[in-house]
Design a binder for these strands. Structure first.
Lengths: 148, 148
DNA sequence: CTAACTGCAAAGTGTTTGCACTCTT
DNA sequence: AAGAGTGCAAACACTTTGCAGTTAG
């Protein structure tokens, strides 16, 4: 996998230049590991792997760079609502309209959508409880606020 | 809205009995406020409102009872992944298969599904960035483990 | 050479826990 | 009464921040 590393290097170097970021060794290794991990890692998981290559690396640096990568669109957060528990009193099947800026959540009724249908089968042994659709974007207020 | 409170009281009393939980004043007020808040509140939001009725109430009691309510299915968490940031390196549109027990996330390709289509229009002014479907359930391992 | 980045430790959040006291059953 | 729940403070886990020293451009 020599090539993969070379590709990641070129890729990150380019992306850093475009974003006005310095290209550092730490940043490269964090990026490489992140891109190689397919399982939606938490910062600690990344830290653990990067450490094996740069034992002196600090967890804060991992957090800093993850944040920077997310801000510059090299990476995304799985959930808009990590950080604080949000509660749901509506136990009926339904979906969500989520504002990625103010984090507001609005319910969408199940029959606002055409039925969600799988074309292929899911991995063997997975037992499905429910489906939920998240419609992500900006609510009216935030969209307006962003137009200064 | 006198009736609504009475309904909630009866409802919670019944549910507590069924679950073997004590029925307390604090628990009732927390439950009532939770059920009255349509906007997917965080524990702090609930605390703030319950406090107006029971100034001596502790935030820990709110957390405790929310946890108990979730465990007994009176309430649900919006996201399985609050608590720790989880990262996504796949920026292509795709969906997720999520194990609610071990929190594992697997990607599902966009074309594993029939196209997601809205029947009705969304609230005025909401600007959509993307849709994502979460298929929630138990992965093979967790499903097996649960069968003792 | 300057601005940006790193490492460390300290400070911040959000959440849980241990314990003495009180209330429900 | 006995067990469950409450309030408080301390403990925890996860994340951010301030600062002195280092490195990239």
């Amino acid at each position: 996998m020599k090539e993969k590393a070379a590709v990641a290097t070129t890729e990150l170097r380019e992306r850093c230049r475009a974003a006005g970021l310095s290209f550092t060794h730490q940043r490269l290794v964090i990026y490489q590991e992140l891109m190689a991990m397919g399982d939606h890692p938490a910062p600690e998981d990344v830290y653990e792997r990067v450490r094996r290559q740069i034992p002196s690396l600090s967890l804060a640096t991992v957090y800093n760079n993850i944040k920077i990568f997310v801000e510059h669109g090299l990476l995304r957060e799985v959930s808009v609502h990590h950080g604080s528990l949000r509660l749901e009193n509506n136990l009926e099947p339904h979906h969500h309209l989520v504002c990625t800026q103010c984090k507001a959540i609005e319910d969408l009724s199940e029959d606002d959508f055409e039925p969600i249908r799988l074309k292929k089968s899911l991995p063997k042994g997975f037992s499905v409880h429910r489906f939920t659709v998240e419609v992500l974007g900006l609510c009216r207020k935030c969209a307006a606020a962003n137009r200064h």
